[in-house]
């Protein structure tokens, strides 16, 4: 068995990103949409670490830490929005929220 080329990791990352995109487009539950966004962020992190390891450059892995911090902030604020939404509208299904529809 020989070693894996960089393309293997990049294609796996692309597949996982696509799964996240399909999740955002198909689910109605706001919590599932947030989880699909996390899937996409993690897919990007995988390709960053892969490029970092194959190119011999540490900056990719440093960027992963910043992505993780932003993702944690996004999860906290997003879930707080879902809680506020549920308190005011008694639903977490995004197609039942039409306050801003004109």
């Amino acid at each position: 068995m020989q070693q894996l080329p960089l393309e293997a990791y990049v294609l796996l990352s692309a597949t996982l990103f696509t799964v996240g995109v399909v999740g955002v487009l198909t689910r109605r539950n706001a919590l599932l949409i947030l989880m699909s966004i996390e899937i996409m962020l993690n897919a990007v992190n995988l390709s960053l670490v892969a490029f970092s390891a194959y190119l011999g450059d540490a900056e990719g892995q440093l960027l992963v830490f910043f992505v993780m911090a932003v993702a944690a902030a996004e999860a906290a604020v997003g879930l707080a929005i879902v809680i506020a939404l549920f308190r005011n509208q008694q639903t977490v299904y995004v197609d039942e929220v039409n306050l801003m529809r004109w």
Partner: peptide, 29 residues
């Protein structure tokens, strides 16, 4: 529609990455 879009996206990424190899065959030492 979303599944079709996802299949299209994967196909596009596959073509993009496989048509121009990066040349990195193994992790950096």
């Amino acid at each position: 529609a979303a599944s079709a879009f996802g299949a299209l996206l994967i196909l596009q990424l596959l073509v993009l990455f496989l048509s121009r190899p990066t040349g990195y065959k193994s992790p950096s030492p």
